[in-house]
Design a protein around this nucleic acid. Structure first.
Lengths: 188, 188
DNA sequence: CAAAAATTATAACAACTGGTCTACATACAT
DNA sequence: ATGTATGTAGACCAGTTGTTATAATTTTTG
């Protein structure tokens, strides 16, 4: 039972990685199959609705992974300024090490599919909201007023996503670093 | 001579729009040809290097258009806080009217091509740098110290790009609005 | 062991991809 | 008028896309 699910998991894991790196349309089912070492028959057995379903489940895996990373990072420090700043700097560090080859987690799928697939768009929306809410909850738990915490959660999420996109394109972690540096001034 | 260049311009204009809306890989040459009303022969006459060259020139047109929009918006008010805030709110307003169908100007191409085409990646980088620099120059011209202005230019650019991406995915201009609201606190 | 269910293996599908090629028309120079 | 770029027009190519259908195989169950 454990090993049997691993075929589906292998497909999702590989698809997750490729969609993130190359985007939705540039990633072919054949490539996913080949790189995951799984047979093509299995793909439509596990994902009868085809590419869209596979992308959806892959995205959910990716989103959960990123969210865990954010939540864990924010827990490391009780003080929100430090916590958020360290989280972003950790992202920058990881980015520098991996050489930006990893792509931008949710954005690549969001941009390509939001206008052509409502289920995928919705999954991206949920993912982004979960990120945003992680920031907001951290701020609330440190005593910030709720409405202000929501505002800041949205703004910080925007900053981080934008900085990630820019760092990826520039091939340089500077945007992430600069955004981290502004966190103290933004939070008072 | 005037009318003849309009064929190339028509192709670029159509391509520019489609790449922005659908992304690089989802936009086929045939679609560009059909929607622009130009024959395929002309495409490879004007763009002998094919899709990559067409995308590059289209991106440059898009980038210039966006930059002009930023520069014009920033000129409307001498005070940088108001200027930037109004610019972002104008973006939000436009976004609400167009119903987010327009896509995200540079990001869609940046994400899809940065890892597979160095010329395109570089064009995206230049585009983003020009946006960033517009903010920085505005801040410098209002008396801000240069290093701080550069830092803030990068951060504001990140915020705006991120908010645009989030607004697009959420189908809601709230992220843009919230980012605009934080500009005063960010600029002290 | 046999029956049933779960999974994998192929082959084929129509539709499309980016790109090439040649034929044709128009304009402009000499 | 004639020759030469410039530009138009579209058929055509090999390769790939996502998807489907069916057959073979393995695994699980009775």
């Amino acid at each position: 039972m454990n090993e049997k699910e691993s075929t589906k998991d292998k497909i999702i894991k590989t698809a997750s990685r490729l969609f993130q790196m190359q985007g939705y349309h540039a990633t072919g089912l054949n490539q996913i199959i080949k790189e995951s070492g799984s047979p093509k028959g299995s793909l439509y057995y596990y994902f009868p609705d085809g590419k869209e379903q596979l992308a959806l489940e892959s995205l959910q895996v990716t989103a959960k992974f990123v969210l865990d990373q954010i939540v864990d990072g924010l827990q490391k420090s009780s003080e929100p300024v430090m916590a958020i700043q360290n989280l972003i700097n950790d992202m920058a560090e990881r980015f520098e090490k991996e050489g930006c080859k990893g792509g931008v987690p949710v954005a690549s799928i969001a941009l390509e599919t939001s206008l052509i697939s409502e289920p995928l768009r919705n999954a991206c929306q949920l993912a982004y909201f979960s990120f945003q809410d992680a920031f907001t909850q951290k701020l609330i738990s440190s005593g910030l007023e709720e409405n202000r915490a929501i505002e800041l959660g949205i703004a910080i999420n925007s900053m981080v996503e934008g900085a990630f996109l820019l760092s990826f394109t520039m091939g340089n972690s500077q945007p992430l670093r600069m955004v981290a540096k502004q966190i103290p001034v933004l939070l008072k």
